[in-house]
């Protein structure tokens, strides 16, 4: 039954148990075990590092295909950040590049059968979004001091509207990490569940004999189409995550908009 269960793919299993605290009884304390999720986080980092280092190992003037793809990735993120946050925002380039590649590679890894999808767990996306907002707020106050609060007071708005506009701005600012994390999490989760449900149709129809086999063609085609769509979603969500990060960083760099 676990084969066709669309939720089973999200189960986290301990691989190297590490438990801290608690009174020794089961379920107490904090579970810091090395899990399948951790394994794929490490694999993601390893894959990104290998890719970028391999791509830049030759240092040839006329790039090979691998080097060109690495350079395209670099230029893509650099242009995205430069167009959103300006030249001053380029000091966050390694941060945005790490975020983009991490999300992208984690999403793409998740599409390989039997691989765990790191970004399908809300705590991971929330942690990334909170990290982004921490960097934005931290750098904003570090760079501009109290002037950073001008972010909530749009320029050119007449004074009597401010009591309405400022709370709206604050709420929209506070909802950013929520929407940022839930968007990524929801897209990936929904995509994987849909994929698994349709793949499950194939299995359960196939068990019904030859008529079932015939009927299973439709969900099979659907599965293939959804897989292609999920590749698009994986890339688009990584892009959106990085673009929004760049825009939020722009607020930290230039708070008065």
């Amino acid at each position: 039954m676990a084969g066709t269960d669309p939720i089973h793919q999200f189960v986290i299993e301990d691989m190297i148990p590490i438990h801290l605290g608690g009174d020794g009884t089961a379920g107490s304390g904090l579970n810091f075990s090395f899990t399948n999720s951790s394994l794929f986080m490490v694999l993601t980092v390893a894959a990104i590092t290998t890719f970028v280092l391999l791509a830049s190992s030759k240092r040839s003037l006329v790039p090979s295909r691998l080097q060109l793809s690495g350079e395209l990735l670099y230029e893509f993120v650099a242009n995205m950040l430069r167009s959103s946050a300006g030249k001053e925002g380029m000091k966050f380039f390694p941060f945005v590049f790490s975020l983009f590649t991490f999300v992208l590679f984690a999403n793409l890894f998740g599409l390989v059968p039997y691989f765990f999808t790191v970004t399908s767990h809300i705590i991971v996306t929330v942690a990334l979004a909170v990290l982004v907002m921490t960097v934005v707020i931290g750098y904003g106050f570090f760079r501009h001091g109290p002037k950073f609060l001008k972010l909530f007071v749009p320029a050119g708005v007449p004074g009597y509207v401010l009591p309405i506009v400022v709370p709206i701005e604050i709420i929209s600012f506070l909802s950013r990490p929520v929407s940022l994390s839930v968007r990524l999490f929801g897209n990936i989760l929904a995509g994987h569940i849909t994929l698994k449900v349709f793949a499950g149709f194939v299995v359960s129809l196939g068990a019904l004999g030859w008529l079932g086999w015939l009927g299973a063609i439709l969900p099979l085609i659907m599965t293939v189409a959804i897989t292609a769509l999920e590749f698009l979603v994986a890339a688009v969500q990584a892009y959106v995550f990085a673009v929004l990060t760049s825009m939020y960083l722009n607020d930290a760099v230039h708070p008065s908009h």
Partner: peptide
Amino acid sequence: TGNLIFGMAMTEALGIFSFL
């Protein structure tokens, strides 16, 4: 196209919220 994808993602997120 960048704006297109961006707007699509922003809108789609609201649908994802109801899914959530």
